[in-house]
Every structure is written in structure tokens, then in C-alpha cells.
Design a protein around this nucleic acid. Structure first.
Lengths: 252, 252
DNA sequence: CGGCCTTTTGACAGGCTTCAAACTGGGTGG
DNA sequence: CCACCCAGTTTGAAGCCTGTCAAAAGGCCG
């Protein structure tokens, strides 16, 4: 499971030397902590394996794999999906830089879905068992991991809830775009625009819409001046109207 | 915020004396722990306020309230909802005995939604700050709370995901009923049947369907022999077919 | 530049929402 | 105890939205 080239990475301030998103990463406090920042003595445990490269189409992990670490995305994008009994795919989420993946497996000790890179992606792997042990030794580590888990619970709810109650396809897509935008902004990755790494098909599968409907809605949103699309790059022109659309029926 | 009648409740084995669901409650390990079971010395902190009664229609907490404790439901049922800007209601979840509520607020320190009892309900309140302090003192408490948070993350995902990707209303409602059934069974509350405490309206709001559609689907499911309805009591006759319906388009 | 996959756009059928009205069941007061 | 009442539920009819099928256009990579 674990490869041999785990770099210990207590290399001090290098933690944010390569990826701009590090500054806003969920795992930043852990990173700093295990790098011996903030007056802490250095821990020579392998907590974080840094900057593993995952090529477009490759798996971070697969359903059934033993869970050993949570992943923080440095750059790129990842989708997770599960297979239904009939073999059809159900996409369970998209994950962008600065976010954590795999926390839903901390108790089952087994991953419950496949995670595949939508583009060339770098991730940091945080060994959960060592993190747990650290909790026994350090007050700060305890508070960090409690906060991490609490944030994940809040994140899941805020991301998923707006999508469930949506009454029209437009409402759903608007909610989805806004949710993505907010997540990109929160991670310090540009305002008002971002790259749509996932295909129309993926979006449709995730939202329960036909890919054609997604495409049509993108065109309509663009016609109405809400967004500007260039290939897979999207610019949000009028987030207020988009927000209205996300909570109201378009015809009301 | 906290009322004065907090019972310390280190009253030993009384923890499961009143509600059958206690045996399968998420909070059972905490209950036992704070009752001094399993060879632990008793803790005279007020960790759990037991069996608070909340009448039908009353609030457990409201959006904006300071967060101080998580709630374990002993009996009854609770719905949570948020208000959109336009004043419309979005139901964010239903909660049944044995489940925890409020964990999504552990970091924000403020509740983000209203929680109202759908019927007369009893809850145990677990003071989060004291739980956190216990983590600093006890290895067992540490593992307990990590497991609690991990379970909540997994729970949120497994409950919400099947509902998002559903392509038809029937698929969505079937997924909803199965999800509820599994939750009731997991808590030791009967197999194959349970009480639908929430109205058709509530279900529709939650799933993004019109209440009429929900009602029609219930009738159709009953006609097809999938379920039997008596007022708000539902019996699942054919969970296999229901499960098929939850993952496949009905016409395929 | 060619091939392939993704995206876009069109037409049609079916499902869902809306509006409307009748019905049921649980709770209240006489 | 019973009639009443009201909220919640059921059922019907019509129109719009969205899924499906199909074909053309665009983008990406070799």
C-alpha cells in the first residue's frame, strides 16, 4: 500500500514553496505543525507525504482499498464516484486544490469510492494513524484534528444541501456553479472565474441531469450574460442573479 | 442558554433504562464512559444532560443560536431547515432516534439551521466543550470523539449522495425510503416498517419534488405492492424492488 | 492535418409541476 | 360521545420542462 519513497518532509518552511494554494489549504495547520513551526519541536514521524503526482485519469485510490491516509489536493482536480449494482456510475463529488479527501473512510478503514484525477494533479498524503497518535501527545494536534473533522462535516453539508432541494435544472446548475466558485475563492484561487475540469457528462451525472440539459443551460446562462464560457474556462459575470436563480424557480 | 436543571447523570447503568434506542445510540459509548462504565473512574463533569423533552413543534435550537452541545435523539423525530433569502424554507434533514444532531456547528460555534421536533421528542444533550476537555485527559475519550466525528462524516455522505444523482422522482423517493429504513434498522427500531413523522410537504421540500408528486408516488408504490401505508405508518413489502428502483430508471 | 471525443443544437415524447377540488384523519369543543 | 373543523392528503387535468434520440459542430492530441 505505502510506497517506499515517503519523504519525511520536516523541511521547515518549504511547505508553501511550490503551490500557491498551500496558503489556504485545509491541511496547512497540520503542515506547519509537522514542519516544526509555531515553536513546536519537530516530529520525526512520517506525517505528510508531499506533492505526489497523479496523472489525468489515474486513481488516487479505489473503492475497497485500505484507508491509510487522507489527501490534500495541491493542484489539479479530482472526482470521486461509486458504482451502482447495475454497473452505472454515480459521481459523488468533485474536489479542488486546498480540500481534503478520504475523511469519510476514517472509521471504515476502507475506501468506499474510486477517486480519479480529472487533470494532472498533485496531492499531499497525511497518514491518519500517525495523526491519531499525535493526538495522544500534543494538545495542538488534538485541536487541529478536531477542527479538521468538524470542518469536513460542515463542508459536506453546505456543498450537498443546496443541490438536493433544487426544483429546476437551472436552479441546480446555478447552485452548483456558485458552490464551486465559493470553494475556489475560499482557497485563494481567483475570484469570479475558474476552470471546469469536469465534463458536461460528469456534471450531469453528479446533479442528476442529462448532459444535453447541462449544455443547454450553459448556453442559456451565457446568452443571458450570467456567465462567459471559453472552452472549459468559466467566468461568473453576475453572481447576484445566479444566486437568485439558485434559490428561486426561474419562472417565479 | 443552558438551563439550570442539568442533571449530572453519572447514575451508572440507568443510561439505557428509559429508551430502547439507547442500546444503538451513536452516543452510547459517551454515555457509558461518562457513567463510569468499563472500569473508568467516574467523571463528575456535566457531560450529558439526559432526556430533555421537546414538544411537537418546539425548537431544539434555532439558526444563529450559540452552539454548546450536540444532541442525541432518544425518541421522536426532528427536522432541520434553513431559510433562503427569499424567505422560502429549505429542509436540510430529518433526524431519528439514536442519531446525533448539531455536529456541523462544532467549529462555527453557531447553529446554521433551525431544528424543530416533528413529534414529542426526547433528546440527550452532550456538552461539546467538556467533551473536548475530556479529550485532553483520557485516551478512550479521544478515540470516542474521533469515531463520533468520523461516523458523522460517513453518515452525511451516505444519506445525501443517493438523493443527489437520482434521475426520476420515483428513484429519488425510493432512495429516500430505503435510506430511512436502513437508518431505523441500524438503530434497532423494527425492520421493514417505521413511522413517517414528516409530512408529504416536508418530504417534497427535502427532495425537491412537489408534495402532490410525493403523494402520487406513495399511491403508486402501494398499488404496485412495494409498500403498505396506514396513515403515517409505512411498511416496506419489497425492498429488493425498491432498491432496484432507487438505482435504475423505472422505464429501463 | 486527420481522427476521436466532447459539446452543441434540434425535435419529440413523457414526466413533473401547477392549479383546483374532493377527501381523510386527528384534535377540539359542545 | 359525537359533530365539527382544519390541516394534510389524494386525485384529476393541462402545460411546461427535461430526457431521449439524432446529427452537426467544435476542440484536443497525435
Amino acid at each position: 500500500m505505502l510506497t517506499e519513497d515517503h519523504s519525511i518532509l520536516s523541511e521547515g518552511a518549504e511547505y508553501n514553496s511550490r503551490f500557491p494554494v498551500c496558503e489556504y489549504c485545509c491541511a496547512l495547520p497540520l503542515c506547519e505543525f509537522s514542519s516544526g513551526e509555531e515553536g513546536q519541536s519537530r516530529h520525526d514521524r512520517k506525517i505528510i507525504k508531499r506533492h505526489r503526482k497523479v496523472r489525468r485519469g489515474e486513481f488516487l485510490y479505489r473503492a475497497g482499498d485500505p484507508f491509510h491516509s487522507i489527501c490534500a489536493i495541491c493542484s489539479g482536480a479530482v472526482k470521486t464516484y461509486a458504482l451502482n449494482r447495475d454497473g452505472s456510475v454515480q459521481i459523488t463529488g468533485f474536489h479542488i486544490p486546498g480540500e481534503l479527501m478520504g475523511l469519510n473512510a476514517v472509521n471504515t478503514k476502507q475506501h468506499t469510492c474510486d477517486a480519479v484525477a480529472l487533470e494532472n494533479t498533485y496531492v499531499c498524503e497525511i497518514l491518519y494513524s500517525h495523526l491519531q497518535e499525535l493526538c495522544d501527545e500534543s494538545f495542538i494536534a488534538r485541536r487541529l484534528i478536531l477542527r479538521l473533522l468538524g470542518d469536513q462535516i460542515a463542508h459536506d453539508q453546505t456543498v450537498l444541501m443546496p443541490l438536493i432541494g433544487a426544483k429546476s435544472a437551472a436552479q441546480q446548475l446555478a447552485a452548483y456553479l456558485l458552490s464551486l466558485l465559493q470553494r475556489f475563492e475560499r482557497r485563494g484561487l481567483s475570484t469570479d472565474e475558474f476552470r471546469l475540469s469536469m465534463s458536461r457528462s460528469d456534471i450531469g451525472n453528479y446533479l442528476g441531469l442529462a448532459k444535453e440539459t447541462v449544455s443547454r443551460l450553459f448556453s442559456r446562462f451565457a446568452d443571458e450574460g450570467l456567465i462567459t464560457l471559453k472552452a472549459r474556462h468559466i467566468h461568473i459575470n453576475d453572481r447576484k442573479r445566479l444566486a437568485l436563480m439558485a434559490t428561486r424557480m426561474p419562472s417565479v
